[in-house]
Simulated scan of single mutants.
Amino acid sequence: MTYVLEGHEHRVSDVNEGFECDACNRSYGDGYSCGECKFTIHKKCVFVFNIQARINHPSHDGHSLEFLTTGAPDHTDPKCHLCGKNTKRLLYHCYDCKVNLDIDCIIDSLCARSDLNMEWHHHPLLMVDLKASLMSCDFCHGTSKHGYCCPRCRLVIHEGCVSVFESPEIIHPSHVRHPLKLISSGAPDYTDRIRLQCHLSMEVMIIIYSTSNNDPVT
């Protein structure tokens, strides 16, 4: 099955685990692949297609940078001009100066300039159309309507679901010994990534309640 990804000219298809994302350079979870451009990208990283196709970056005054999906041009150094890491298929490029910037360095600049700050999250956010961006809310898993995306920690949440952040700490009947704290970065490494209440795998969830003293929820 193929999908239309907003901001990209080609249709993309599903990719299972075991690939290296061309946006974040990490391997986890599911994603999408473009057969024409030969890139793969996590479902959590497709927000990069919501960034402008041409941007100005403080490290490169005078010329704008263009978003590329097929890797650094052959006549250029594939390393990122800022961090020195090898760029992937997704990057920003200056055709005048033959300069390449990777997605992580673009995100740092994007967050620094963002004025969309919410009291319920500690990083600047982007407004995204979840359905057009093929992204799903980390709280309700829905894909319709507009929502927020955090470029740094990959949090995605519907505009109508942000009320969950009004209860950063709760007492749950399944675990009355300690309060559960809301975390938005996924299940901690020391925990079993299974919710005992419904036995639903937490691999794709990043908004959960957890104890703060490493005790399992029983």
Rank of each mutant, 00 (worst) to 15 (best):
T2W: 06
T2N: 10
Y3G: 08
L5I: 03
E6R: 09
H10D: 12
R11N: 13
V12N: 00
V12D: 03
S13Q: 06
D14P: 02
E17N: 14
C24V: 10
N25D: 12
N25S: 12
N25W: 06
R26L: 15
S27P: 12
Y28D: 05
G29W: 01
G29I: 08
G35M: 06
C37T: 07
K44T: 11
F47E: 00
F47A: 07
V48R: 00
N50L: 02
I51G: 00
Q52V: 08
H63F: 11
L65N: 02
T69L: 01
P73L: 07
T76H: 00
P78G: 07
P78C: 06
C80E: 09
H81N: 11
L91Y: 10
H93D: 06
C94W: 03
C94I: 10
V99W: 01
L101R: 01
D102N: 14
I103Q: 00
I103D: 02
I106V: 12
I106S: 01
I107F: 13
I107N: 02
S109D: 13
L110W: 02
L116I: 14
L116H: 07
N117L: 15
E119F: 12
E119K: 10
P124R: 14
L125F: 12
L125G: 03
L126N: 04
M127H: 08
M127C: 14
K131Q: 12
A132H: 09
S133R: 04
L134N: 02
M135D: 04
G147Q: 05
Y148N: 04
Y148F: 15
P151V: 09
R154I: 05
E159L: 13
G160S: 13
C161Y: 13
C161T: 10
C161V: 09
V164F: 13
H172F: 11
H175R: 06
R177F: 03
L180F: 15
K181T: 04
L182Q: 02
A187W: 07
D192G: 06
C198V: 08
C198P: 01
H199E: 11
E203R: 08
I206S: 09
S210L: 11
S212D: 15
N213K: 15
D215M: 15
T218R: 07
